[in-house]
């Protein structure tokens, strides 16, 4: 602004003339001694420096705009990926129907059973003031279901994998199937309706109970979760007994 002021009449015109003279540093025509020379030098430096910085600012913005952080974003459409990648877009494997055990594992993770019963049902999470100390582990649920040998364990898993609940009437090849069926119905009820937890210290805080999942899990979800839990059983237990 200041350096582009028009050469008007009077003082302004004279100032601009003397300014130009200083700028061209002609010692022969020294300007009026009333004009402060250091101020003019600063003015020149300001204009030149400002111009340079503006130039560099433009360069910086351009450099930023060309950095991968910016331009890769615009190459993210499927079309540009295909253009950039000689192998073409990745071929996704065909999604296969998950088996009940896989589905049960997904339900277990997404419903959040693991926050209490541990990842892979291994337990060990503390329940404050709970009679048993920690939330029950679930990777030994086969024993709780009275599946007493490896064959019954395999038969139960097979039935659940086919979508048949263990309290069904048909013969599933499980040793003492009626008893197993009763226990199975019990576990299903606990999962659907929840179960209160006993306090260790009657005057202390209330320990966290097993919440009910009836409005969040379907019958299939519960059956598949139990199939998943049975599949977690360490089969060594059966070998030792034999």
């Amino acid at each position: 602004m200041a350096c582009r002021r028009d050469a008007g009449e009077g003082g302004d015109g004279a100032r601009l003339r003397s300014f130009l003279i200083v700028a061209m540093s002609n010692p022969a025509k020294k300007p009026d001694s009333r004009d402060p020379v250091p101020g003019r030098i600063l003015l020149v430096l300001g204009c030149v420096g400002g111009g340079l910085l503006a130039f560099y600012l433009v360069l910086a913005v351009q450099a930023w705009a060309w950095s991968p952080a910016v331009y890769v974003r615009y190459a993210e459409s499927p079309r540009s990926r295909t253009l950039l990648d000689p192998a073409g877009p990745p071929v996704r494997p065909q999604a296969t129907q998950p088996t009940p055990v896989e589905h049960g594992r997904e339900v277990y993770r997404r419903a959040g059973c693991a926050v209490c019963h541990g990842v892979d049902g291994k337990g060990g999470v503390i329940n404050p003031n709970y009679q048993r100390g920690t939330f029950p582990q679930l990777n030994n649920i086969s024993q709780r279901l009275f599946l007493r040998d490896a064959d019954s364990h395999a038969a139960a898993l097979e039935a659940l994998n086919e979508g048949i609940p263990l309290d069904a009437d048909e013969d599933l090849g499980i040793d003492r199937q009626r008893l197993v069926g009763v226990q199975y119905a019990n576990v299903v009820r606990i999962i659907l309706d929840g179960n209160p937890a006993q306090r260790k210290d009657p005057a202390g805080v209330a320990p966290l109970p097993m919440p009910g999942w009836r409005d969040r899990l379907s019958e299939t979800d519960v059956r598949d979760v139990i199939a998943y839990l049975i599949s977690l059983q360490d089969l060594k237990v059966y070998e030792e007994e034999e």
């Binding site: 004009d35 300001g46 400002g50």
Partner: peptide
């Protein structure tokens, strides 16, 4: 006049 000009100079220099 020169003092007011000095003010402008500082402004021009301060922006960059």
């Amino acid at each position: 006049r020169s003092r007011s000009q000095g003010w402008w100079v500082w402004l021009v220099a301060a922006v960059p």
